[in-house]
């Protein structure tokens, strides 16, 4: 079981206003089987945080460790799912999912078998040979998820994965993600600006505040866990505790906003 440690990380973008950091002194631990959700408005540094963990960006100060090894660049041990799917349109569904395995030099038969198993996990059996540009947004996002999973990373990072989907598909995808998380027992780090999504999915909710990007609040939640243990999403979301938590987080967001505007 892996452990991801973000240790007092600060990021200044070159050329940005002096003193304002994209992220300031952020510390975070993502332990085994956790589903950590970073929530915040645009400009709060949540994308910066994800890019740091993925290795696309280097921190100005502080460090990021995965199982006590310093993260210094992108690698297959940290899989990423993007908002705009970032699939390769010249490959069909199966080859897209098998792409990471192909890069690793796995034989065709072996990687297609793995890709096929992963497609079963995301309910896309029967679409193996379809070109990805023929799929709907939700299906493409499932292919992106399958591609990330097939490479068997230690941590799965999701960059606002459902933001571009319609409300129905989004809920369906959230439930799919929880089922997957339960099944594959990997740690997941997801960023979103959707409050209800964050409260529903997270085992650990990190609320980020903007300018400079800081951790404003940490909460431990169990709605996602309850759903993955069989309780229906509707009954969780209409429950009193869910609504209270959501309103509480909303009040925190508004409180921050007042602080930052005064």
């Amino acid at each position: 079981m892996s452990r991801l440690v973000i240790d007092q990380v600060t990021v200044h973008y070159p050329g940005s206003a002096r003193g304002v950091a994209a992220l300031e002194d952020v510390s975070l631990v993502i332990g085994p089987e956790q589903l950590v959700v970073a929530l915040g408005p645009s400009g709060c540094g949540k994308t910066t945080l994800l890019n740091l963990i993925a290795g696309f960006l280097q921190p100005t100060s502080g460090r990021i460790l995965l199982d006590d090894r310093l993260v210094s660049g992108p690698s297959a041990e940290r899989g990423v799912v993007f908002q705009d799917d970032a699939l390769l349109p010249w490959l069909n569904v199966l080859d897209n999912v098998a792409f990471g395995l192909q890069l690793r030099g796995m034989s065709r038969a072996e990687r297609e078998a793995t890709a096929h198993r992963t497609l079963q996990l995301v309910d896309l059996v029967g679409f193996e040979q379809n070109p990805i540009w023929q799929l709907s947004g939700g299906m493409r996002q499932r292919v992106g998820l399958a591609r990330g999973l097939a490479a068997d990373p230690r941590v799965l990072l999701l960059d606002e994965p459902f933001a571009a989907l319609d409300a129905f598909t989004r809920e369906q995808m959230q439930e799919l993600l929880l089922r997957l998380w339960r099944k594959i027992r990997k740690q997941i780090f997801l960023i979103t600006h959707d409050l209800e999504e964050a409260v529903f999915l997270a085992t650990d909710l990190i609320l980020l505040s903007p300018r400079p990007g800081r951790v404003a609040e940490r909460m431990q939640l169990d709605f996602g866990l309850r759903h993955s243990q069989g309780e229906s999403a509707r009954s969780i979301k209409s429950g009193r505790r869910f609504i209270e938590t959501r309103e509480y987080v909303l009040s925190l967001v508004f409180a921050q906003r007042e602080v930052s505007t005064t």
Binding site: A54, F82, L103
Partner: peptide, 19 residues
């Protein structure tokens, strides 16, 4: 994002170019 996706699947510089 396509480049980043391939990098986070472990692509080398040559593989990025080729694939």
């Amino acid at each position: 994002n396509r480049l980043r996706a391939a990098q986070s699947l472990g692509a080398t510089r040559f593989q990025l170019l080729r694939y």
